[in-house]
């Protein structure tokens, strides 16, 4: 682990060890995480694409690395991954623009 570097890929190896400090919560999280990502009504593949989209929207380099690899390993094509990221990008743009209705409402209320 490189102590002089943020977002070092090797940091991820330390991730399971976060349970050392708050074991109850940490273990509960990892259990929940595993359950949430396993195949259910949605396939493992569909969940990996959702996770990749969230990773890009949340700007998490660790998750982007992990879920791009996971998608590749499950046979997801690059076109499918890019389409999924566009869903995230358009939703992000949409949620910014949807807030403009608040701006418009306040303007309507306050302007003479």
């Amino acid at each position: 682990m490189n102590r002089n570097k943020y977002y070092d890929p090797a940091d991820l190896q330390d991730f399971p060890n976060i349970t050392e400090d708050a074991p109850t919560q940490g273990n509960a999280f990892f259990d929940y995480y595993a359950r949430a990502l396993e195949a259910g009504a949605l396939s493992e593949r569909e969940k990996a694409l959702i996770a990749l989209t969230v990773a890009a929207v949340r700007h998490c380099p660790y998750c982007i690395d992990a879920y791009t690899t996971k998608c590749l390993s499950l046979g997801v094509t690059r076109e499918e991954m890019m389409e999924a990221v566009h869903v995230g990008a358009s939703m992000s743009a949409g949620d910014v623009l949807a807030h403009s209705t608040q701006i418009r409402k306040i303007i309507e209320q306050k302007e003479m």
Binding site: S43, A48, S73, L74, G75
Partner: peptide
């Protein structure tokens, strides 16, 4: 490779 079960389904 991803899980064999998942790949087989696809």
């Amino acid at each position: 490779p991803g899980s064999q079960t998942s790949l087989e389904q696809e």
